[in-house]
Design a protein around this nucleic acid. Structure first.
Length: 575
RNA sequence: GCCCCUGUAGCUCAACGGACAGAGCAGUGGCCUUCUAAGCCAAAGGUUGCAGGUUCGAGUCCUGCCGGGGGCGCCA
């Protein structure tokens, strides 16, 4: 099914051309025709304000332009009533076409609302990407739900999509992890070892140590931290993977930062930047301002020369200071491998690279894009939806999460509390720029305050109708959708055919949260009153109409199931 | 030093620069011999923080101010 708004947009463009040919409108370049959904049903199903936008260039009154458009609009069986009103042109979908969409939805089934807008293009969505140093934090879960939902939406729009997880298992954090486990292990053996500053303090560290002790006894007493790091990494990674799987997030690929060192690409990037004259070695960045990021004397004692490598970020984008790409210790900062990673992704031939990040990575994203662009790659393919932070509140108290301090609510705890569907829904149903407070008390409540049940109950009700019909040996075969003439029935169909519009919007804006709002406030909200008032299987309803209505509710079920699936949620048949 | 987000109904939040700013919850009044009431209907609730500006049109864009939250600098 072609999106109604795309159909109307094309018709209006055609009308503009025709009106020009006839001399009713003067010559001008035909603009893209915006289509909006009027808030009020009085203004039709769709509308365009294009006449108002053309008022200046044509030196005509908006209403005159709108009327000219209506006069020249090509006939189309998808469009019913069209009228000019207050400068807008309002469109109503044709009743017969709407009725026919019930059949279309039933035929398309799970594939309903799929489009070929981006067929033949490849997209990659990177999200979560947490280093395996501890249980996955709620902030990463938010990014993960956004990313996974977006991946599903991109697939529906025709993209071939890969979901990727990028992680670092070489850096300082992983060393601290290994050392933390090592100390806990030694403590279990009755030895007192100094816990590292900035070490990981969570109880899971002790669990891992215990597991190692159970398997190896005291034989690792003199082993290096690397041994513990490796075991901890494997343990934690499988933990993360299992947790994410519980909410339906399964990655297609895992990309290890180490490989960028092993294949030399990190150093190739450094060399390429150097050849562009963008790199220099110094104790401090060259800049006019006082620099307060110099190493203190203590650091200088442990680092050979106190020389770091800097990138001329000031010449790449609007910042006041150059940034470090190699530390005093000789180890690259995240900017270098991250740039190499993004170049690697681009070279894998993706047309679109989506990288979901938390708000604390804003600067990183800008730096990396600037560096990628400086090396001649198409950074415009890289899109970085950012989301604000997540806090967890319980009993009126808000808690900030910290993996290092061992203060967090784990994803597993969250899923145990509220179920996977609620986790998915609540994490999705907030615009990304809003701070999210995940209210445990509220999410735990299994009441009508919970949109999850409201949406799923619509599906349950459809399933229930089908079940009851089959118990009464009634089926929808031969049902005539032309009998669906009640305004409430048509209102539901109008809502059902909006799904392709919503998917399109989510994909173009890379904003998956819109699907969650639509599912609740539009789809389910439209469905329930219709369900209450339009009976399919009541004694008064003639069999022919009952069959038609069975088709309608079957179509609603298809759309509800599809919507829930796109959000990674279940579509239960019973509550 | 630099940067980001945010301020909309009592509360939690929506609204791709378009028409009369919408939902849920709480509160008020109705509705269960009918496909599951985790539901429906009705009424009520607003100077979109303040002041300017751009625009045919601003909750949305720009500037300033006030309030709230957070980030960055050699962890990523």
């Amino acid at each position: 099914m072609k999106r109604p708004s795309a159909v109307i947009s094309e018709l209006v463009e055609e009308a503009l051309k025709q009106a020009q040919s006839s001399g009713e409108l003067p010559r001008f370049n035909i603009p893209d025709v915006p289509i909006i959904k009027p808030r009020s049903a009085d203004h039709g199903d769709y509308a365009t304000p294009v006449a108002m936008q053309l008022a200046r260039v044509t030196r005509m009154k908006p209403d005159a332009i709108a009327r000219a458009l209506v006069n020249h609009l090509p006939a189309d069986d998808r469009v019913g009533n069209v009228e000019a009103q207050g400068g807008f042109v309002n469109f109503r979908l044709a009743t017969a076409w709407l009725q026919q969409q019930v059949e279309v939805i039933l035929e398309d089934g799970e594939g309903f609302a799929d489009s070929s807008d981006h067929t033949g293009r490849r997209a990659q969505v990177e999200c979560v990407s947490a280093n395996p140093t501890g249980p996955i934090t709620v902030g990463r879960v938010r990014g993960g739900v956004m990313g996974d939902t977006l991946a599903r939406l991109l697939r529906a729009a025709g993209y071939q999509v890969e979901l990727e997880y990028y992680f670092n298992n070489a850096g300082r954090q992983m060393r601290l992890l290994g050392q933390s486990v090592q100390v806990r292990y030694l403590e279990l053996l009755g030895r007192d070892a100094g816990f590292p500053d900035d070490g990981y303090q969570g109880d899971y560290i002790i669990d891992i140590a215990r597991q190692i002790a159970a398997g190896h006894g005291s034989s690792l007493a003199n082993a290096g931290w690397e041994v513990f790091k490796e075991r901890a990494e494997a343990y934690i990674f499988s933990m993360i993977r299992a947790s994410l799987k519980r909410i339906g997030i399964v990655f297609d690929s895992y990309f290890n930062e180490n490989s960028l060192y092993e294949d030399g690409s990190v150093w190739a990037v450094l060399e390429a930047l150097r050849q562009k004259g963008l790199v220099y070695e110094a104790r401090a960045p060259e800049c006019d301002d006082d620099y307060d990021g110099r190493p203190d004397e203590e650091d200088l004692e442990v680092t050979a020369e106190g020389i770091a490598t800097w990138i001329r970020m000031r010449s790449l984008r609007d910042v006041s200071k150059d940034k470090a790409i190699i530390k005093f210790s000789g180890e690259p900062t995240y900017r270098l491998p991250d740039t190499a990673y993004h170049i690697n992704k681009l070279e894998r031939g993706f047309d679109l690279l989506v990288n979901i990040l938390g708000a604390d990575h804003i600067e990183e994203a800008k730096d990396v894009k600037a560096m990628v662009a400086a090396l001649g790659y198409d950074a415009a393919k890289i899109r970085v939806p950012l989301h604000q932070f997540v806090t967890i509140s319980e009993g009126g108290e808000t808690r900030r999460m910290s993996t290092r301090k061992g203060e967090f609510v784990t994803l597993d705890e969250l899923v145990d509390d509220v179920g996977p569907d609620a986790v998915r829904y609540f994490m999705l149903a907030r615009s990304p720029e809003s701070h999210m407070d995940f209210d445990l008390d509220l999410a735990r409540r299994q009441s009508n305050e919970n949109p999850v049940y409201y949406i799923q109950n619509a599906h349950v009700r459809c399933a229930s109708i089908a079940r009851t019909a089959s118990e009464r040996s009634l089926n929808m075969e031969g049902g005539d959708v032309a009998l669906l003439t009640d305004e409430r029935e048509l209102a539901l169909i109008r809502k059902l055919v909006e799904l392709p519009e919503i998917i399109h919007l989510c994909v173009e804006e890379l904003e998956p949260h819109r699907l969650a709002f639509w599912a609740h406030e539009e789809l389910a909200r439209t469905f329930h009153p219709v369900y209450e008032e339009i009976r399919a299987l009541h004694g008064d309803v003639p069999e022919s109409l009952a069959k038609a209505r069975l088709k309608l509710f079957a179509a609603a079920r298809v759309v509800l199931a599809r919507t829930l699936d796109l959000m990674g949620m279940g579509a239960p048949d019973t509550m």
